[in-house]
Amino acid sequence: MKDMVLKDSALIDVRSVSKEYDTSDGPVLAVKPTSLRLMEGEFVSIVGPSGCGKTTLLKMMGGLIPITSGEIMLRETTVKGPSDDIGFVFQGSVLLPWKSSQENVLLPIRVARRTTKEDIQRARELLHLVGLENFEHRYPFELSGGMQQRVSICRALIQDPSCLLMDEPFGALDALTRENMNVFFNGLWRQTGKTVALVTHSIQEAVFLSNRVIVMSQRPGTVLDEIEIPFPAERTPDLIGTKEFGELTSRIRKYFSAAHLD
């Protein structure tokens, strides 16, 4: 297993990007001009109070919604829409119930072209990687919530993107499954070496998984602070009990209690 070497180049560079929504009461600012960078191979979590625009920010990074001002760069190109180089993992697993795990994983390829033997092989490898080697031909209704989300992660990985953008991927899971998924996902990240941006409500999840946690303010959201998480790449559940882990989570939590007061 290779250790994470964070390269010094930004994979995604968000340059003073803002987002304004038109509503019946006039325009509403969802995201104040915000800048942040995702370095190659890095795992960054974005935390913030509900409705602070963190999901909006993530979707703008993925090219899923247009930006109001500023610029987002993916390597040297401006992000103008979705790209094969970015895999998006949605809040629910958003699988198609009439397709088997394997067919769901292959969907991004199916809509672009005919699938080849190599594609199918790759889909099987991915499902194997997430521990679903005997579930290729099972349908979503035969899988647990955690399994479904793992299938959807495979779907995001099938085009071998450089970057995974994940919007509360484990939010719908029960606490125990969620903890297991965190450990599992740390392993997956180390094996695949992808750059990951994770939006989450859970401070513990953010600290457990990330190299860096970005704290966002209340609506209209912008970056309040960036906290380096100095733990080694491999994370185990024992980490959660340590003093350093507790200090980091309480440091982040303070932002929310302060935000709560005003």
């Binding site: 993925g62 899923l64 829409g81 979705p82 094969d84 998006f88 949605f90 809040q91 629910g92 958003v94 198609l96 009439w98 969907l107 991004p108 199916r110 809509v111 672009a112």
Partner: peptide, 26 residues
Amino acid sequence: VSADHYELFYAIRASRLKRLYHLVIP
């Protein structure tokens, strides 16, 4: 058809026809 599924098909850059076939009609 849920907004989430439409967003997924937008993210994977599916054409209208593919979206009809793989998502909307089923």
